[in-house]
């Protein structure tokens, strides 16, 4: 059970139960759909832009605790950030959940470090990154195609 607590940290369980910034954003400048056919996770990310910065971001959809908490915490982290800041943050986050030697990005990632436990569960990496891939699609493309992590 203790190994599982490393994956399912209290913060993650809390964001799963009470996701922040959950629900559609109307009106939104950008919108993208992400889908993980392996487990059926599906979410939509909505973005309102202020120049190249994310003025507001929300998400809706269904998913496992990891994907929902990751989406929820992502929306909290990226508000006010520029596209480049977000790309750098995603890169660090991806490293955190995949690289065996990760662990020193603490300052940069802030509370996203609670997802470090995911790296012990390779099948769950896609859950943790689905919302990030979807946000990236929303930011990169004015009429994004649905992204899939398969």
């Amino acid at each position: 059970m203790s190994e599982l607590r490393d994956l399912y940290q209290e913060v993650i369980l809390d964001h799963n139960k009470r996701p922040r910034n959950f629900g559609a954003l109307e009106p939104a400048d950008r919108r993208a759909i992400g889908h993980n056919p392996l487990c059926g996770d599906k979410l939509t990310v909505y973005v309102r832009l202020d120049g190249t910065r994310v003025a507001d971001v929300r998400f809706e959809g269904q998913g496992c605790a990891i994907s929902k908490a990751s989406a929820s915490m992502m929306t909290e982290m990226v508000k006010g950030l520029s596209r480049d800041d977000i790309a750098a943050l995603f890169e660090s986050f991806h490293h955190l959940v995949t690289a065996p030697d990760a662990g020193d990005e603490g300052d940069h990632l802030g509370k996203l470090t609670v997802f470090a436990g995911v790296r012990e569960y390779p099948t769950r990496v896609k859950c943790a990154t689905l919302s990030w891939h979807t946000l990236r699609a929303a930011l990169e493309d004015e009429a994004p195609q649905p992204v899939t992590t398969e």
């Binding site: 599982l4 056919p37 487990c39 496992c64 605790a65």
Partner: peptide, 22 residues
Amino acid sequence: DVHPHDVGTVLDQEGVAVRAGQ
């Protein structure tokens, strides 16, 4: 309201292999 994928991970940790998905 626990997602089946999460149930699958907990079960795996207990040594129980099931399929969680569609």
